[in-house]
């Protein structure tokens, strides 16, 4: 087994305006290379915070995080992040947005252009390269964010509710595409969602978070055969179990 991300006793306290906010406490988990892990939990239980910590964008208040065997000290070149609120530059066209991560790495302009096109096509945005983000629908913007993250062939994809703003059909299609990328490239995926069904359709493993302070309440292995459907008995049984763990009356999406 190949440990890709290791969190040991990770806690995060934000200095909020009305006093400190404990977003996470005592997070221990090891993520194997090539696995698909979903972080599941209701709003405010620290899922985005943990993702940002693993991305090296925030420093833990306690504990350690290591990525690819190295203690994290700022963003790792091995990981790419897809932000909950897209994080697209409004003054750049889709093409330029998708090129940005490569530009930051000094990839030459010509190569950048071709590669960006490839991922624009892959995410179904063909023909939208010259548009500005405000000219796109919410779902298209999310796809631009995903395309940008894929351009650098990251060993790990950290995705923060990437399909949150999508209709059921588009969501389903992109879930399939993501699974395909994951299977062919053997990328490690950490995927934040608050949808139980989405977690069960995608993950090898689900970390269930509970709030105040955010902590891992359960670590569930999902052995359902792929491709998965919501219609099997095992699926509904697991969904019921997860609903109980989250402490929600029903799936709230």
């Amino acid at each position: 087994m190949n440990r890709f991300i290791e969190c040991v006793g990770v806690g995060k306290i934000y200095p909020g305006k009305t006093g400190p906010v404990e977003a996470l406490r005592g997070i221990d988990f090891i993520c194997e290379a090539g696995s698909f892990v979903c972080l599941l939990g209701r709003s405010g239980c620290g899922k985005s915070t943990l993702l940002q910590l693993m991305a090296g964008l925030e420093k833990p208040s306690s504990g350690q995080i290591a990525v690819a065997g190295r203690e994290l000290d700022g963003p790792s070149p091995e990981a790419a992040i897809v932000f909950q609120d897209h994080g697209l530059f409004p003054w750049m066209t889709v093409q330029k947005n998708v090129e940005f991560n490569m530009k930051a790495r000094g990839v030459p302009a010509g190569q950048r252009r071709d590669r960006a096109r490839k991922f624009i096509d892959m995410t179904g945005l063909t023909g939208f390269g010259d548009r500005y983000p405000h000219e796109l629908s919410g779902g298209m913007r999310q796809r631009v964010g995903i395309a940008r993250a894929l351009t650098t062939d990251p060993k790990a994809l950290l995705m923060d509710e990437p399909f949150g703003a999508l209709d059921a059909q588009t969501r389903g299609r992109l879930q399939d595409e993501l699974l395909q990328i994951w299977e062919t490239q053997r990328t490690t995926v950490l995927f934040v969602t608050h949808s139980i069904d989405e977690a069960l359709l995608l993950a090898d493993r689900i970390l269930v978070f509970t709030p105040r302070p955010g902590k891992i309440a359960a670590d569930i292995k999902v052995d359902l055969p792929r491709p998965r459907t919501q219609q099997s008995d095992d699926f509904t049984a697991l969904a019921r179990e997860l609903r109980g763990l989250i402490g929600a009356e029903r799936d709230f999406d």
Partner: peptide, 19 residues
Amino acid sequence: TLIKVARAARAGEFLVMKD
């Protein structure tokens, strides 16, 4: 978030200023 995107991409300070 936009500054975070730049940091996550490990963009240099000049590129951050310019772009």
